[in-house]
């Protein structure tokens, strides 16, 4: 195995994130199951397809509810250092994002409906570039608020107008 292209950031998201991802996976699987049920009832499918589709739905359910949330939780990391915001996201493919505090333009905190059930919030750090946005998903709501305040405050102190 080759070494990672970048080190892993220090902190994990909230443990509740696993639950949230599982709920998202369950909703997706449910939609898929309804779709397949509709197909089976209303369309004359060949027998092999009629058997294969439900199997695929079950596999998708196992992956998206049982496996993917845990993998995601192992990959997702974040860190705020003196100079920069640093995250790693993904599950099979991974993305490391690094933005220096001096180039931060806006800090957003969002709390989706499901996130509120789990007491979570996401922080988005925006820069002058559309591709230079750091998203720290699913932190405990109070942690997210603290991080956003701290970053917005520090960005104001060291902002580099020459973006």
């Amino acid at each position: 195995m080759h070494p990672d292209p970048a080190r892993s950031p220090a902190w994990t998201p909230s443990r509740n994130a696993i639950g949230l991802w599982a709920v998202e996976g369950a909703v997706g699987t449910l939609v898929l199951a309804l779709l397949v049920t509709g197909l089976e009832v209303f369309l004359p499918l060949p027998t092999w397809l009629a058997v294969l589709l439900p199997v695929l739905v079950v596999v998708e359910g196992v992956v998206s509810i049982g496996v993917r949330p845990r993998l995601r939780y192992r990959v997702h990391r974040w860190e705020v250092t003196a100079e920069a915001v640093y995250t790693r996201t993904g599950w099979l493919s991974r993305t490391w994002t690094l933005v220096p505090v001096s180039r931060i333009q806006t800090v957003d905190v969002t709390r989706g409906a499901v996130q509120q059930l789990f007491g979570l919030a996401s922080v988005a750090v925006l820069t002058a570039s559309s591709q230079g946005t750091v998203r720290i998903p699913h932190l405990d709501a109070d942690v997210a608020a603290r991080v956003a305040d701290d970053l917005a405050h520090r960005a104001e102190l060291v902002r580099d107008e020459a973006t």
């Binding site: 195995m1 080759h2 070494p3 990672d4 292209p5 970048a6 099979l92 493919s93 991974r94 993305t95 490391w96 994002t97 690094l98 933005v99 220096p100 180039r103 820069t127 002058a128 570039s129 591709q131 230079g132 750091v134 973006t163």
Partner: peptide, 25 residues
């Protein structure tokens, strides 16, 4: 440069390469 992104897909990881994106305003 206003930020960096390092992307590595499952296959890139096995082949020891990565894609680096320089975010520029």
């Amino acid at each position: 440069v206003v930020g960096w992104q390092v992307q590595q897909s499952f296959f890139q990881r096995r082949q020891g390469v990565a894609t680096v994106v320089a975010a520029v305003g």
